[in-house]
Design a protein around this nucleic acid. Structure first.
Length: 1024
RNA sequence: GGGCCUGUAGCUCAGGCGGUUAGAGCGCAGUCCUGAUAAGACUGAGGUCGUUGGUUCGAGUCCAUCCAGGCCCA
C-alpha cells in the first residue's frame, strides 16, 4: 500500500475544487469552524449586503475573497469568526429594475399599477439571483453564513430601523426641512448628498446665458439692464431677485442704445464695444426694482412670498411681486457678471436668501421636471425648455450672449437623469450635531490603505452635512412618523408593539411595507382635534438600511441586547470597494457614532475598483462585467483568488486579465503541485512515512538547513503580513518560496531521491520536503483553500488520527526561529547567483551544460563571501557541471584582464585567455572553455545517457523499471559506451549495454549526436 | 476650483533609512537543461524611472512645480 495517495502531475483544479467542496459539505467544516469553539475570542466580520437582483460579477468576487482570506486566517489563529451573510433588498435600484420590466415610467404609472402589486414585484425581484450568488459564493470558497442571512426587508430588520429612528427623534436629531435638494425628476425623489456623490459627471455641457433684466426706475432716459449669468435658463421664470456683492464695485456701461450694469471686475465678459459711464458700489444697487422676464401672474404660476411674523418665516400666498436687487455674501467675482439670478424655488442658497430677504417664491416646474403654467415652453422637460427660453429671450432683446459651459454636474446614480435642485421638504438626520465625533472616532479606525482615513474619508467627514434620509418612493423601509391631518401632532413610532398600542389594533403578521403600513391610522388625541393620525408617505434611504446592519442583523434591542458587551459590536473587519466611502462605510460610521459614540469597525480594507481589459470601470450599465464562471471553470478558484490577492495591492485599481490568472496558475499553483507530486511519487517508491522522522529531528544537509531556514522565515513574514491585513505581500512571498523550493531545492536534491537505498541523507531530504509542503499548505490555506486542503489531507491527516479533519480547522504555522540560519541563506543566495552567471558564461561560449568543464574561477564582491563560496562550492560545481572551483580576488590576473575587456556599462560576458567570463556588480564567474578529449568523452557519455532516458520515457517505462540498451554508431560511441559504461548504466537503470541494433525495441531512434549518426534502442530487462 | 491616489520595459508589477551598472514575470527571437514540472535556465531586443527645477558628494527614492490618468468633492 502506498504511503500517500498517488498525485499525478496532471491536475484539473476545477475538478479538485468540486471534490473539496463536497468534502467540506460532508463534514460540515465551515459550521464547525465557528460553532466548535464557543470559548474562543470573537472576531466579527460584517458582510456588506449585496443586492441580488442581478448576477454577480468579478468585482463581487474580489470583495468576497478579501473578506474570506482574513476570516480564514483568524480562524486558523484560533478565533471564532462570526460572519453572517446579508441581502440588501430595498431602494431605488430595485424599483428601477421593476419599473423597466413592467414598462412603467413614472410614479403615476406605479400608483395606477398599484403600490401593493408593485412592491410585491420588487420583493420577488430581489431574490431572483440569490441562487447565482449562493453558487458563486460557494464556488470561490467564500465562507459566510448563508443559511441565516439578514434581509433588509424582514419585519424584524425594519423594526430595528424604527427603533433607531425613534432614538434619534427623541434626541431631536431627526427633523424635516425645506431645502434646495438634489432631485431626480425621473425617479421623482430627492437624493442624499452621498447618493449625489455617486453620480457626478465631468465635462457636462450646459447652456451659458447672459440675460438682461430691465431696471424699472433707473435715472435718466436710456434703458438700463442688469446683466446676470446662468447655466440653467429653465430656472429664469422662477426668478424673484438679483443678488450683488454690496462691497464690490459695479460699472454702468453704455452699449449701442442702452446701458448694462456689470461688476467692474467682470467687464471682460462683455464682447461688444462699450464705454464706462459711471461706477458705484453694490450696496447702491440694492433695492432697485426690475421687470421680471416672465411675470408669473401672466403665465398662471402661483405667487407666494416669504414673510416673517413674530420671528417665524413662512410662505404665504401673494397676488403679485416686485423683483429687486438684494445683497448676498456668495456672489462670485470669478465668473458670470457679478450679478446672480435668484430663484428661491430651486437652489439651496437661493432658498436661504429668499427666507432672509422675504423674497417672492415662484415654482413654475413640477417634480417631474415639466414646466407648468402657460409659458410658451410649458409642458416641456426643463432641459428641453432651455433652448426655447433662450430663443424667446433673444427675440425679445433680453439676451446678451449665449454659449456653452462645460462643468461637472450631478446625475442620478441609477438612472443617469441630470439632477435638478428643487426646493422641497425632506427629512434629515442631524449628523452635523456629531461632526466632531465623526472625525475623532474615525481616527481610531485602521484603514487599508492608510491614506483613506485622513484623506478621502476624513475629508468627507470634515465636510459633513445632514443626512437626507427620506425618499418619496414605495419600496423601502417606511419612515415611522405619523402625523395628524388637521393639527401639528406628530409621533415617531419605535416598534411594532408601540404602533399596535397607538392604533389599538392587532398588528401581528402585518407587512410593514407600503401600502399596508399606511392603512394603520388612528384618531388624533390632541385636545379638541378631530383629525386622523396618518403615516407620512416617505420611505427611507436604502443606505440607512445597510448602515444599520450591525444592530438589525440581530434584531437589536428587541433580541440579542447583549451584543453591546459580548464582542459582536463593533466589527473587527469589513472590506468593500472604495466607492463605498460615501456609501456603506459612511452609513455604518454615522449610525455607530450617533447611537454608540464608537467605531462601527476597527479595521477596513478599501479595495480599488476592478477595471475591464481596457481600463474602464466595470458596471452593469456599461455591460462590461466579466462573468466569474468562465474563469472558475478553466482555472479554478484558487488561481482566481491568488491572482486577485497578489496582482496589486488592495487599494490600487486593477485591470482584470484572464491571461494573468492563467499565469498565476502555472507559476504558483502548478509549480507547487509538481513539487507535491514529485514528493509523493518518490515517497511512495521508498515507502517513506512521516513516522520515520525521528523525534526532535534537525536538518543536517546543507540544502535542508537552507530551505528550512527560508521556510521558517517565510512563516514569520507571512504571518506578519496577514496579521496586518496584507494578503498581497503574503501571497507574493509564498510564491517566491515556491519558486526557490522547486527550482533550487528540488532541482539540487533530485539525485538524493534517486538513490536506491534509503539512508539518513535521503530520509533528511524527505523530512525536509515533507515539512516544507505541509507548512506551505497551512500557510497558504487562507489564500488558496482548495489545493491546501487536498495537500493537508493527503500529507498530514492520513498520518495523524487526532488531527483536525480540515486544514481550516488546524492551527496556523508558527516559525521555528532557531532554524532561521542567516549565513546559510546568504551563502545559498550566492550559489544561485554564481550558478546563474556561470550559465551565462557557458551560454555565451556555446558550452552546453551537459558538457563537463575543468574549472570555474569565481570572484566575489566581498571577502566575507569567499567563506560562503567554500561552503556552497560543491553545489555550484554540480549545478554547472564543472570539476573544480578556484576563488579569486580583485587583484587576480583573470579578473583584471576581464574588467579591461568589459565595457564599463552593464552586465557583460567576455572571452579572456581561454575562459568565458561573466561580470556583474563586482562578481565574476569565468568558466574554462577548453575541452580535453577526456572531457569530450564524458560529455558524450552524458549525451548518450540523456538520449536513453528519453527513450525510456517515450516507452512509458516505470521510473523503477530496469532495462537493456542497444547502440550502433562510429567507434567513438563504442569507446565511450565502454569507458563510461558504468555511469550510463547507473543513470539509465540499464543492466546491459549492447553494441548492436535491436529489432523489436520498445523504443528506438536514430539521431545525429556530435556530428555522428547514432542508433539507440531500449527494452525492458528480463533478467536480474 | 479643491482633496486623495497613481505615473518605472509592449503588458502586469517590485524597487526598507538616498549609495556601485534600476529589477522580476509575461510576450517576442534564439540557445540550453530536464526520469517532478503543463515547467525551468541563459542570451538578445525593449527604460529620457511622467516633466522641469531644487536639496545633496550622490536622487527612481527627499522637496517644489507642471503634465497625464483614476477616484472623490465643490
Amino acid at each position: 500500500m502506498p504511503s500517500f495517495d498517488v498525485v499525478s502531475s496532471r491536475v484539473s483544479f476545477p475538478e479538485l475544487d468540486a471534490e473539496i467542496l463536497d468534502y467540506w459539505k460532508e463534514r460540515d467544516v465551515f459550521r464547525r469552524s465557528v460553532d466548535d469553539r464557543p470559548d474562543a475570542p470573537l472576531f466579527m466580520m460584517y458582510e456588506g449586503p449585496p443586492t441580488a437582483n442581478g448576477s454577480p460579477g468579478i468585482h463581487h468576487v474580489l470583495a468576497r475573497v478579501f473578506k474570506d482570506v482574513v476570516s480564514r486566517y483568524r480562524t486558523m489563529k484560533g478565533s471564532r469568526v462570526i460572519r453572517k451573510g446579508g441581502w440588501d433588498t430595498h431602494g431605488l435600484p430595485v424599483e428601477m429594475a421593476v419599473e423597466q420590466e413592467l414598462g412603467l415610467s413614472s410614479k403615476r404609472d406605479i400608483e395606477e399599477y398599484g403600490i401593493a402589486e408593485f412592491n410585491e414585484r420588487c420583493r420577488e425581484s430581489v431574490f431572483r439571483y440569490v441562487k447565482d450568488w449562493e453558487v458563486m459564493t460557494d464556488r470561490i470558497g467564500y465562507w459566510v453564513d448563508m443559511d441565516s442571512p439578514y434581509v433588509t426587508l424582514e419585519t424584524d430588520y425594519i423594526e430595528t430601523g424604527w427603533w433607531i429612528l425613534k432614538q434619534l427623534w427623541d434626541r431631536g436629531l431627526l427633523y424635516q426641512d425645506r431645502r434646495g435638494t438634489p432631485h431626480c425628476p425621473r425617479c421623482v425623489s430627492s437624493l442624499s448628498s452621498h447618493e449625489v456623490a455617486l453620480g457626478y459627471r465631468e465635462n457636462t455641457p450646459d447652456p451659458s446665458v447672459f440675460v438682461k433684466f430691465e431696471a424699472t426706475a433707473w435715472p435718466g432716459s436710456v434703458p438700463t439692464y442688469f446683466l446676470a449669468w446662468t447655466t440653467t435658463p429653465w430656472t429664469l421664470p422662477g426668478n424673484t431677485a438679483l443678488a450683488v456683492d454690496p462691497d464690490a464695485e459695479y460699472s454702468v456701461v453704455s452699449v449701442t442704445d442702452h446701458q448694462l450694469v456689470v461688476a467692474t471686475a467682470l467687464l471682460k465678459v462683455l464682447h461688444d464695444d462699450y464705454s464706462v459711464i459711471e461706477t458705484r458700489p453694490g450696496s447702491e444697487l440694492v433695492g432697485h426694482e426690475y421687470r421680471p422676464l416672465y411675470d408669473a401672474a401672466d403665465f398662471g404660476s402661483s405667487i407666494q412670498q416669504f414673510l416673517r411674523r413674530d420671528g417665524v418665516t413662512q410662505l404665504e400666498d401673494a397676488g403679485s411681486y416686485s423683483p429687486r436687487v438684494v445683497a448676498a455674501d456668495f456672489v462670485s467675482m470669478e465668473d458670470g457678471s457679478g450679478i446672480v439670478h435668484i430663484a428661491p424655488a430651486f437652489g439651496d442658497e437661493d432658498l436661504a436668501l429668499g427666507r432672509e430677504r422675504e423674497l417672492a417664491f415662484i415654482q413654475p416646474v413640477d417634480l417631474q421636471g415639466i414646466v407648468t403654467g402657460s409659458y410658451p415652453f410649458a409642458g416641456k422637460f426643463v432641459k428641453d425648455a432651455d433652448p426655447e427660453i433662450t430663443a424667446d429671450l433673444e427675440s425679445r432683446g433680453l439676451l446678451y450672449h449665449q454659449g456653452t459651459y462645460r462643468h461637472t454636474y450631478p446625475f442620478c446614480w441609477r438612472c443617469d437623469t441630470p439632477l435638478l435642485y428643487y426646493a422641497k421638504t425632506s427629512w434629515y438626520i442631524r449628523t452635523t450635531a456629531v461632526k466632531d465625533r465623526l472625525v475623532d472616532i474615525n481616527s481610531g479606525i485602521n484603514w487599508y490603505p492608510g491614506h483613506i482615513r485622513e484623506g478621502r474619508f476624513g475629508e468627507w467627514l470634515r465636510n459633513n452635512v445632514d443626512w437626507a434620509i427620506s425618499r418619496e418612493r414605495y419600496w423601502g423601509t417606511p419612515i415611522p412618523i405619523w402625523r395628524c391631518d388637521h393639527c401639528e401632532e406628530t409621533q415617531c413610532v419605535g416598534s411594532v408593539a408601540e404602533l399596535a398600542a397607538s392604533s389599538a389594533q392587532d398588528l401581528n403578521g402585518l407587512d410593514l411595507h407600503r401600502p399596508y403600513v399606511d392603512d394603520v391610522v388612528w384618531p388624533c388625541e390632541s385636545e379638541g382635534c378631530d383629525g386622523v393620525m396618518r403615516r407620512i408617505p416617505e420611505v427611507m434611504d436604502c443606505w440607512f438600511d445597510s448602515g444599520m446592519m450591525p444592530y438589525a442583523q440581530w434584531h437589536y434591542p428587541f433580541e440579542n441586547a447583549e451584543i453591546d458587551s459580548d464582542g459582536r459590536l463593533p466589527a473587527d473587519y469589513i472590506c468593500e470597494a472604495v466607492d463605498q466611502t460615501r456609501g456603506w462605510f459612511y452609513s455604518l460610521h454615522a449610525l455607530s457614532t450617533l447611537l454608540k459614540d464608537d467605531v462601527a469597525y476597527r479595521n477596513v480594507i478599501c479595495l480599488g475598483l476592478i477595471l475591464d481589459g481596457r481600463g474602464r470601470k466595470m458596471s452593469k450599465r456599461l455591460g462590461n462585467i466579466v462573468e466569474p464562471d468562465t474563469i472558475l471553470d478553466t482555472h479554478g478558484a484558487d488561481a482566481l483568488r491568488w491572482y486577485l490577492f497578489t496582482a496589486s495591492h488592495p487599494g490600487e485599481p486593477r485591470r482584470f486579465s484572464d491571461r494573468l490568472v492563467q499565469q498565476t496558475l502555472r507559476q504558483v499553483l502548478l509549480t507547487l503541485w509538481n513539487v507535491y507530486s514529485f514528493f509523493t511519487n518518490y515517497a511512495n517508491i521508498d515507502e517513506f512515512e512521516p513516522s520515520q522522522i525521528p523525534e526532535g529531528w534537525r536538518p543536517e544537509a546543507e540544502l535542508d538547513r537552507w530551505i528550512l531556514a527560508e521556510l521558517n522565515q517565510l512563516v514569520q513574514v507571512v504571518d506578519d503580513h496577514l496579521d496586518n491585513y496584507n494578503p498581497t505581500d503574503a501571497g507574493r512571498r509564498i510564491a517566491e518560496f515556491i519558486d526557490v523550493l522547486s527550482n533550487w531545492y528540488v532541482r539540487r536534491s533530485r539525485r538524493r531521491f534517486w538513490k536506491s537505498e534509503i539512508d539518513s541523507d535521503k530520509l533528511g531530504g524527505y523530512a525536509t520536503l515533507y515539512r516544507c509542503l505541509t507548512t506551505v499548505a497551512r500557510l497558504m490555506a487562507p489564500l488558496a483553500p482548495f489545493v491546501s486542503e487536498q495537500m493537508y489531507r493527503n500529507l498530514e491527516l492520513r498520518y495523524q488520527a487526532d488531527a483536525p479533519d480540515s486544514v481550516h480547522l488546524s492551527a496556523y504555522p508558527v516559525a521555528d526561529t532557531l532554524l532561521i540560519d542567516r549565513p546559510i541563506m546568504e551563502a545559498t543566495r550566492l550559489a544561485i547567483r554564481v550558478s546563474s552567471m556561470g550559465r551565462a558564461a557557458r551560454s555565451k561560449a556555446g558550452l552546453k551544460v551537459r558538457q563537463p568543464l575543468a574549472e570555474v574561477v569565481v570572484k566575489t564582491r566581498t571577502d566575507s563571501e569567499l567563506e560562503y563560496l567554500a561552503q556552497v562550492g560543491p553545489q555550484i560545481l554540480e549545478e554547472l557541471n564543472i570539476k573544480e572551483l578556484q576563488p579569486a580576488d580583485s587583484s587576480g590576473d583573470l579578473y583584471v584582464r576581464a574588467r579591461e575587456l568589459a565595457d564599463d556599462d552593464g552586465d557583460t560576458v567576455v572571452s579572456v585567455a581561454g575562459y568565458s567570463a561573466a561580470l556583474d556588480s563586482g562578481y565574476m564567474v569565468a568558466v574554462d572553455a577548453r575541452i580535453t578529449s577526456e572531457l569530450a568523452d564524458e560529455g558524450l557519455a552524458r549525451e548518450l545517457a540523456h538520449r536513453i532516458q528519453n527513450l525510456r520515457k517515450g516507452a512509458r517505462f516505470e521510473i523503477t523499471d530496469r532495462i537493456v540498451a542497444y547502440y550502433d554508431g562510429p567507434d567513438d560511441v563504442a569507446r565511450v559506451m565502454t569507458i563510461h559504461g558504468d555511469y550510463i548504466k547507473q543513470e539509465t537503470l540499464s543492466d546491459d549495454l549492447f553494441g548492436s541494433v535491436l529489432e523489436d525495441a520498445a523504443k528506438s531512434e536514430t539521431a545525429q549526436i556530435e556530428g555522428m549518426e547514432v542508433t539507440l534502442g531500449v527494452r525492458l530487462s528480463n533478467g536480474a
